[in-house]
């Protein structure tokens, strides 16, 4: 039995309940803020910040990353880097692409050259709608 094992044993069940209560508060907060629509992209930013805080609480206390650091911290950090990498470079591609090389959206549909409607989203009944 080494030191970290003792450290995890020091606290009683109270800490878990406190974390649980905090998670419930943050859930209520995010639902409440979700009802208010902020201008620009701020709604999603705030929602993601709250989700990240909640996730951090779960990881640190429920999953004991606070006590058992080392290799598992490295694993988590590396994982997050690669998730960010995947999402970041894919989104960068679509965001900087020649618009008509993306699948047709509301913004690009009117720009489409005339032709058969086979490539239009099935959800759109007819081009005439625009």
């Amino acid at each position: 039995m080494s030191a970290p094992e003792h450290a995890s044993h020091k606290h009683g069940p109270g800490r878990y309940v406190a974390v649980w209560a905090a998670l419930l508060v943050f859930t209520a907060l995010t639902v409440g803020l979700g009802r208010i629509h902020l201008a620009g992209g701020w709604s999603i930013v705030i929602a993601m910040v709250i989700a990240t805080v909640k996730a951090s609480l779960v990881v640190l206390f429920f999953m004991h990353m606070k006590e058992h650091g080392g290799a598992s911290r490295l694993v988590l950090a590396t994982t997050l880097v690669f998730v960010a990498l995947l999402m970041g470079l894919v989104l960068l591609d679509n965001a900087t692409r020649f618009p008509l090389a993306n699948p047709p959206t509301e913004a690009t549909l009117p720009l489409m050259p005339p032709g058969p409607d086979a490539t239009l989203p099935a959800a759109v009944p007819a081009r005439a709608a625009h």
Binding site: L86, V90, D93, P103, P104, T119, A123
Partner: peptide, 17 residues
């Protein structure tokens, strides 16, 4: 499937990742 709003290039991104 672009006909349903999908991007075939996304497949290539995920595949080559």
């Amino acid at each position: 499937d672009p006909a349903r709003g999908g991007d075939p290039v996304l497949f290539q991104h995920l595949f080559w990742f």
